[in-house]
Design a binder for these strands. Structure first.
Lengths: 200, 200
DNA sequence: TACGATGCGGACCGGCGGTCCGGTTAACGT
DNA sequence: ACGTTAACCGGACCGCCGGTCCGCATCGTA
């Protein structure tokens, strides 16, 4: 943490850039037709400032997404049930997946932009490992997933794949599935995976 | 189909291009550092010929992938059990997913290149709709998925998400999971979704 | 106020996917 | 065998994008 205190204009420019980028990603249909020059121009600064502040395109999007992700991560790591660590696995797994789904729905543009960086797959992101480890840990306390056969590991990957940004975008954005309907479908699917058959 | 018969050199160049592209995508680590110029050069033709033959980058990759996909699609639509249409759903769903998984494992580079086109999400590809419709149809004949609540629809999406190319690449290519192990994990997961609890 | 350090900005760069058109060559009628 | 023609070839070329660079303005401090 050798970070020196940033200058006042630098901080203000950083904020303008975040706001402008947020705005642009929300308004344009496809994330990849928001260019770095667009962001800089919309914020009223030069490209140099943009790259100085965030390193590269991925850095910018990560900064945006991190702001949205952080409250959820905190609720999961140090919060009360049904998200926090003091929740029985059978309850926590669906709660975490639901929280992630809502996050992706509410921030489709950002999540999509992040996955569409191109240069790195979603599985290289460090927060993916955290979600995976969490889910895996919870699953392995559920009867049937306990063995060292990796079934909890794979199930964690598969469940996370069900809330991937582009799938969510396809369902909500393209096919027009309503938010609550999707939530209940995911809950239903999760319950099935956990072995809680639901009669229909 | 007003397609005129192509000239002989055109056909040969097309074949060289396919072979060269196949080779390049297999040898280079990341699909996006195979450039169109690379492909043309490796095939010993000009870029114009490459773009004339396939339209654009996506067209080239689709042509490559289609060749691998076609036998599987035929086995599923007009083949014998356990893939063909005369298979009971509880058997067909895992068989289809296993076939897809094997396809993705064996053609990781191509599947990855296809999903990494950037310009279009995997869910815009027409073959995705076919797989989804197939799986959905089979699932809806399974007790518990039958209602008009869309649980079969969502489950089909979720199961397909579990065999997405970048997840497969992460598991097999990065984390070194063995092919047979992954197949059995997927089978286990699928069985869970279908309500067939496995004791471990 | 004067002076260093820090940040600014936009011209610039390399490389990408994709286009264009003059030269070349295959296919076919005679 | 040969001429005609339409199709095809190739690589120079274009526009655009992410990212860099460096002379200049601005901030924080004595």
């Amino acid at each position: 943490m050798a970070d020196r205190k940033p200058r006042k204009d630098a901080a203000r420019n950083r904020a303008s850039l975040l706001a402008a980028a947020e705005e642009l990603f929300a308004s344009r249909a496809r994330p990849e037709d928001v260019t770095m020059s667009d962001v800089a121009a919309a914020a009223g600064v030069g490209k140099g400032t943009l790259f100085r502040a965030f390193g590269d395109r991925t850095g910018l999007i990560r900064a945006l997404y991190a702001a949205r992700l952080e409250p959820v991560e905190e609720a999961v790591t140090t919060g009360p049930p049904p998200l926090g660590p003091d929740t029985p696995p059978l309850e926590r797994v669906p709660a975490v997946l639901d929280a992630l789904l809502c996050l992706k729905i509410d921030n489709r543009h950002l999540a999509l932009a992040l996955e569409a960086t191109g240069s790195d797959s979603p599985y290289d992101a460090d927060h993916y490992d955290r979600w995976h480890a969490l889910l895996r840990g919870a699953l392995e306390q559920v009867p049937g997933f306990g063995g060292g056969d990796g079934s909890g590991d794979f199930a964690a990957h598969a469940l996370l794949a069900a809330v991937r940004a582009d799938l969510v975008e396809h369902l909500v954005g393209v096919r027009g599935v309503e938010r609550e309907r999707l939530r209940s479908q995911l809950a239903d699917f999760t319950a099935r995976v956990l072995g809680q058959r639901s009669e229909a």
